[in-house]
């Protein structure tokens, strides 16, 4: 109310009108300049993504030309980096294969999703439907805070708590000796990465699912309850299906976050691009892995070597393409679901 008295739109506009009469020409020039500026900045915002593509492709070009599709189908990235580093400047080595990194990214992301989706969805259902009003409010604040915790903190806690815990609980020296030829078993592993990553994306999935569920018109819920359907039946068969497009889009976005997470994973997941072997049983999860994003962080200190720089940019390109694909996919899913429901 206060602001209405001091700066009512009508009052201001009256002043504006007087002004307009006096300085019409000057104002129209000023307006058109401002409008052009706004358009220019908007174009700049939109064109950034194009620049990102151009620059990353340009930097990665050398590696991609040499390796083409082999970059994502062969492995041995860590050794290749060492070879490239030790190569004399006049005989650079351009051979790189990032299959290990790709699989590391894939396994950690999938594992994190398997944990985080049920947890995030449950939390969202509790916040929107089951909890008493006061608790809902508190939970929403907690979730928002958790979503804004920096990844480096998750990484730090993972490194100081999760990693020693895994080492203590699951890794015996006998097991370490058995696998010493292939990799060194420590707590830093795919499992640690999965745990840290899933805790990181639970708040994201929760927040987006809460938004999606809240966007479901209240009258769907009323209709279902009036038909004698139980509260849980209503949630399961009416509310969640109606929120499907938003929930799916949210999950896809959180996949993007998981795939692109660099810092936390570079701290806890082991830092070596091993290919996890399903035949290893439990050790599959204990394999130290490296993801595309964390490889860039881990090897960034030796980026001054042009071959390594190009290899890391190639990793970045794979990431970029994946995440752009995921963004487009999220949009497509939202559109398709809505069209199926007759809302678009």
């Amino acid at each position: 109310m206060q602001s209405f008295e001091t700066s009512s739109p009508e009052e201001k506009l009256f002043a504006v009108r007087i002004e307009t009469k006096n300085r019409l020409n000057l104002i129209s020039v000023r307006d058109s300049i401002s409008e052009k500026l706004v358009f220019l900045l908007t174009t700049a915002s939109a064109i950034v993504i194009v620049f990102i593509f151009i620059f990353i492709v340009k930097e990665a070009a050398a590696v991609l030309q040499v390796n083409s599709i082999n970059f994502v189908t062969t492995s041995g990235f860590d050794q290749q980096i060492i070879n490239a580093y030790n190569a004399p400047a006049d005989k650079p080595i351009w051979q790189f294969g990032a299959l290990g990194l790709l699989l590391g990214t894939l396994t950690t992301t999938l594992g994190a999703l398997l944990l985080a989706v049920p947890m995030g969805m449950s939390t969202a259902i509790v916040i929107t439907e089951l909890a008493p009003v006061r608790l809902r409010y508190i939970l929403r604040i907690v979730i928002r805070l958790l979503a804004s915790i920096p990844s480096v903190i998750y990484g730090l806690i993972g490194l100081m708590v999760v990693v020693p815990f895994i080492q203590e609980l699951l890794i015996s020296s006998e097991l370490q000796i058995r696998y010493i030829d292939r990799f060194q078993l420590a707590g830093n592993s795919m499992l640690a990465g999965i745990v840290v990553l899933s805790i990181m994306i639970v708040p994201i999935i929760t927040a987006l699912a809460v938004d999606a569920i809240n966007a479901v018109p209240h009258h769907y819920k009323e209709a279902a309850l009036a038909l004698g359907i139980s509260h849980w039946g209503t949630i399961l068969r009416v509310i969640l299906p109606a929120a499907k497009s938003g929930i799916l889009a949210g999950i896809i976005l959180s996949v993007g976050r998981a795939v692109g997470e660099a810092i936390a994973l570079s701290m806890v997941s082991g830092g070596i691009g091993n290919i996890p072997q399903p035949g290893d049983g439990m050790v599959f999860f204990l394999t130290p892995v490296l993801t595309l994003a964390s490889a860039i962080v881990n090897k960034s200190e030796i980026m001054s070597v042009p071959t390594i720089e190009a290899a890391l940019f190639a990793c970045g390109l794979v990431l970029l393409v994946t995440c752009v694909g995921l963004s487009l996919c999220a949009r497509l899913v939202e559109y398709l679901v809505k069209r199926g429901e007759g809302r678009a």
Binding site: P217, A224, A226, L227, G228, I229, G233, V238, P241, E341
Partner: peptide
């Protein structure tokens, strides 16, 4: 609510197929 059905001011079919709208309360 099984004995007392209700129709609302604003038509509120579920955003599902016509047939599902009828089958859902039956199945439940």
């Amino acid at each position: 609510r099984k004995q007392v059905g209700m129709v609302f001011q604003q038509a509120n079919p579920f955003p599902q197929t016509v047939l599902n709208n009828l089958k859902l309360p039956l199945e439940e």
